[in-house]
Write a protein that binds this DNA or RNA. Structure first.
Lengths: 263, 263
DNA sequence: GCAAATTTGTTCGTATGTATT
DNA sequence: CAATACATACGAACAAATTTG
């Protein structure tokens, strides 16, 4: 056995998909058809398909069939930028490359007061177990689920007068601008910490992705004029439709007109 | 059937792993033992284990058994930094956070002249099919495979006098400094384009990761004083042991003393 | 060095459950 | 309700990798 049969079948199907012989959105032959075609058992065919599902090349729908996944035009987020511009864009400075026609939408925040996980308190440099204000929202682009975002602020900000943080309303002017105006906290910069991991069950449901796909998780820590962390924002993006740009150095050419990802 | 049996088994094992009942590196009961314990067939037990493998919680070794994966202390790369400091560090400004004791090592480059893929020529803004110099190297940290890096330069640079680009030797002073000195090209900045994807078979072999794991792929385009792209570097990192930091704004506190990832 | 024992990997056949049309 | 298609589960057999005696 040079190669296991299920791998031969998977490779053959993968080749058909990559060559365009099986176009995105089209249906694969049913498992029974593939069983006849490759003279294998149905279980072996299913092992091959499982592999393709894991690779994100196809998706199965019970009662319907197996279909070649359609690639979405990836959404590109620029992580760097002059912090001052961030106002009105929400916690993230989202500059969408190649997205002229795209319509972002986000839910009104779900506001809670909770004891945050160590991942957050450590970054905010507060004792673990401290109560924090969290503002969670779901974000869509063109009605496609795009990211899940949660921002954490110290409770202390409320006492100092930033009461709108507790209200479940979009802070349209931008939370950064609001904090500057309300309690005189200026964000002088931020640090993004980029990781990748598997989605939890919530994320699988919201993004409609499988358990063995990948999400980016970006922790953004904002620092005030005293170089102290003033807030932490955690954003989760499905890796299959998100990419990121980081610019270092001033006056770089606009990425919009080159650097395009492969079609 | 509230939950499929193989998911119940997987969840139970996952719980044992997360609780520390099964510690990292330790061996799970054999498939036959698990078959008896859960009164399921061996195939059902194997389905459960496959799921855990996909989640990266365990790894199987033919002839030996199934073992709880040991998490490596992640390696953190800072993507932003004053470009001037990059000299001597190689194409990437690699500032290792929490890495005092770690020893980086890289192979001597494999140098080729090739027609690069569209992904590269598009970023370099040269016609597709143009010949480019590529310098490929494998990079290790503490003898663990850490990243695969390939840099592309226009052939024209050779004619203009940067002949050392063609030599399969480490350019210890840094390629950026060398180009400045040899042909007067200054890198004024760069752009990183961050994506995630599945590893190809080469990468699976080199990093010793499975086909359904994830790698980061970072395209770094360097720009010269005329704001034209002067080189493109592609680096691939396995996602299970790599994280990235992006700083926006000056004078942020050192991430080394906070922001530590969870143990 | 070799053979046996152990353990995971592949493949088949079969039966039944669940979702969709 | 019936037909179709994928999902789960069991049992069995043999192959391949590794360790042990």
């Amino acid at each position: 056995m040079a190669q296991p049969l299920y791998l031969q079948i998977a490779d053959d199907l993968e080749e058909q998909i990559r060559s365009g012989d099986l176009s995105p959105g089209s249906q694969l032959p049913t498992e029974d058809d593939l069983r006849d075609k490759y003279r294998a058992s149905r279980n072996t065919v299913r092992d091959a398909i499982k592999r393709l599902v894991g690779q994100g090349l196809v998706e199965t729908r019970p009662g319907q069939g197996t279909f070649v996944t359609t690639k979405v035009d990836p959404f590109v987020t620029v992580l760097t930028g002059k912090p001052a511009i961030a106002g009105g864009e929400g916690p993230f400075y989202l500059s969408e490359v190649n997205a002229e026609h795209r319509k972002p939408f986000r839910t009104t925040p779900r506001v809670e007061v909770q004891t945050a996980p160590g991942m957050i308190t450590r970054r905010l440099r507060v004792p673990s177990g401290t109560h924090l204000v969290s503002r969670h929202e779901q974000r869509y682009i063109d009605d496609l689920p795009w990211s899940l975002q949660t921002s954490f602020y110290p409770m202390e900000f409320i006492a100092r007068g930033a009461t709108r943080l507790l209200i479940a309303e979009d802070i349209t002017q931008g939370a950064v601008d609001y904090l500057a105006e309300a309690i005189g906290l200026e964000q002088i910069g931020y640090r993004d910490w980029i990781t990748a991991r598997r989605p939890d069950s919530n994320e699988q449901r919201f993004f409609r992705i499988s358990h063995d796909s990948t999400v980016f998780e970006i922790f953004r820590t904002g620092f005030d004029q005293h170089r102290k962390p003033m807030r932490v924002t955690v954003t989760v993006f499905p890796a299959d439709r998100n990419q990121f740009i980081v610019n270092t150095g001033d006056d770089l050419p606009d990425p919009r007109y080159d650097d395009l990802p492969d079609a």
